[in-house]
Amino acid sequence: MLFDALLGLLLLGLAWLLLSCRDLFKAIVLFVAFGLLMAIVWVRLDAPDVALAEVAIGAGLTGALLMSALAKLPVDNPPGRYSNEKTHWLLPLTLALMLLLVASGLGYALWSLPVIAPGLSGEVAANLEQSGVSNPVTAVLLNFRGYDTLLEIVVLLLALLGVWSLNSLDATPATAEKPANLVLDTLMRLLVPLLILVAAYLLWAGANSPGGAFQAGAVLAAAGVLLLLAGWRLPTALAGLPLRLALVAGPVAFITLAALTLLNARLLELPVEHAGMLILLLETFAMFSIGVTLAALFLGQRPQERGGSA
């Protein structure tokens, strides 16, 4: 109880520090710390799957993405620039009052909710046998609500498409290759195989314990980020169609499966006896694509293709 209260206060404090921080670099570090603390909260709430996702994506990868974005910002952006702008005191006051009103209304609504929610965990448990996996979260994501996941995986690809379409606007040359750093290089050689192993484990474990394609994909992406940091770049021969194939492998596997199930007249109905195998197959493709997509997002720029049509 005391621990939870302390955790909640720390979370609030970190959020306040993060928002009021003028230095963007510091704010990102605080954001990562916030994500790690949040993961502990998820563990306390008995949601280890969410905790894993929070650490891998919320804290780890988002932090890396924010850092990569910060590095691309122009340097001549003095901190505290906004503090000089004069705003009339009435505007913040009105906004604060309105927000307070909304927050208290929401607080009242939350307060009135039943403590024990009439959720669907009973239904999920009752149908778990039919789903092909024994981890209820995986069963919901890949089977009961697999259609949602199909669209979500496409959203991730869409995000990358958006970033790449922006990049083609101004063809700034790729940043100069950094000289090889011995420590980073050695670390990378040790860590990347380990990360790939962890990703494979998370993927496999997802069938019956916390884990799954998203977490595994994020770990895979972390390996990619490390490689990129160490100065590795995709060979130009692979940057065209092969890279695009890797990016769409997950969505295409999902769409293909959906189309095949249509032959049986029901969208995404997995036959019970093959469901476990099909889910593992889908997750493998999805993990691969998620990893490549997240790493590509970190790089930001579309890798140089052979023939120079970047």
């Binding site: 609500r145 949602d148 979500e152 496409v154 959203v155 958006g162 379409s165 922006l166």
Partner: peptide, 30 residues
Amino acid sequence: ALFLSADIFNLYITLELMGMAAVALVALKG
């Protein structure tokens, strides 16, 4: 997908898909 959905969470995902695509398309002109 949005017009065919009967599920408010699924609708959220279609909204997300629609919104992200629309934003990227607006930015296309540069």
